Simulated scan of single mutants.
Amino acid sequence: MTTTITTPYGFSSTATDVAQGIDLAGRRAIVTGASSGLGTETARVLAGTGAAVTLAVRDVAAGERVATEIAEATGNRDLRVARLDLADPESIADFTTAWRGPLHILVNNAGVMACPEQYTEQGWERQFATNHLGHFALTTGLHAALAADGAARVVAVRSSGHQLSPIVWDDIHFAFRPYDPWLAYGQSKTANVLFAVEATRRWADDNITANAVMPGAVYTNLQRHTDGGRGSGSVPAELIKTVGQGAATAVLVATSPLLEGIGGRYFADCNDAEVLDRRGAPLLGVARYAVDPAGARRLWTLSEGMLAAGPGH
């Protein structure tokens, strides 16, 4: 039976709180989507632990501004900004090919939410392409660097939105069913959790662990396509987190000694989440289909095939 992981932290804990006493000097981290919101806060706190942090961003100028601010706030000048467009396989390939040396922490934070119907040139639905396939290609492309560390951690910043939809295997890209931005978002988030499950299994011999984390309800640029983030139902005011609180679970999973060797899990409010067979309390729990090992293996194989096939598939 799997042991539930509990920590001293919870809903109100901040990223700064959970990083107290953590020393990552000599370690290297990548944070995607680090030019705003949760990504910026995650990068700032990791830099504060002494880690060398790469901000992987679409807007390099914005990333440079953030890097300067982080350096001034933390005193850590070991910061790098690199362009990364998760919807563009060539951009991802450029990023992974350019990487040199080991990688200790990869925080897959970037994403899009409930955007209008859009497709990449490959014919992939944009939310699935960005939130899942982009990070899949990035992480697998960095596998050798992660393996070189000997105890690397991958953090998938996900959402309770995964409860909106499982993977619809026969029509992932809405070729036949009417496009629904929230269902598309939901299945992309389910895919992120499944990825963590299978990456941990496949890469166990490399001592690479991957976990999914739910930041909570935090209003950032992610909600730009929604009614203030309330398009799928309003969140009670008492459940809204600050950016610092929202980044806490990702930073905890990326750095805490309590999580050493732990992978394939879903964390919320800095603790292991309950596996659900029906929708539960808002923002808590992980749907059983999102941590299903068979589904995780199926998605991995499907993702490899889609990336190999290229345009039109």
Results as ranks from 00 to 15, higher is better:
204 A>Y: 04
246 G>N: 10
161 G>D: 10
165 S>F: 07
146 L>W: 09
238 E>R: 12
275 V>K: 06
183 L>F: 11
177 R>D: 11
86 L>G: 00
309 A>M: 06
266 Y>W: 13
293 P>N: 05
141 G>D: 02
98 A>D: 14
96 T>S: 13
37 G>Q: 02
185 Y>K: 08
222 L>K: 00
235 V>E: 07
66 V>P: 04
271 N>C: 13
166 P>K: 12
226 T>E: 14
65 R>M: 11
56 A>P: 05
210 A>I: 01
4 T>M: 08
267 F>K: 01
38 L>T: 00
276 L>V: 02
109 N>M: 11
301 T>E: 15
122 Q>Y: 14
233 G>F: 11
6 T>R: 13
276 L>A: 00
148 A>I: 00
14 T>C: 01
229 G>H: 04
6 T>K: 09
149 D>Y: 11
257 P>G: 09
158 R>Q: 13
82 A>C: 11
128 F>M: 12
44 R>D: 01
236 P>E: 10
175 A>Y: 05
147 A>L: 04
18 V>M: 06
53 V>T: 04
155 V>H: 02
86 L>F: 09
49 T>N: 12
258 L>R: 14
56 A>R: 07
298 R>N: 09
291 V>K: 10
20 Q>K: 13
158 R>E: 15
141 G>Y: 00
308 A>H: 07
137 A>I: 00
66 V>D: 03
48 G>R: 07
45 V>F: 07
212 A>M: 01
24 L>N: 09
16 T>Y: 13
17 D>C: 04
179 Y>D: 07
152 A>C: 07
29 A>W: 08
164 L>D: 13
246 G>P: 09
200 T>A: 11
205 D>R: 11
149 D>P: 04
204 A>M: 03
262 I>H: 14
169 W>C: 07
61 A>L: 08
138 L>W: 01
141 G>I: 08
87 A>I: 01
192 N>W: 08
155 V>T: 07
111 G>T: 09
230 R>D: 15
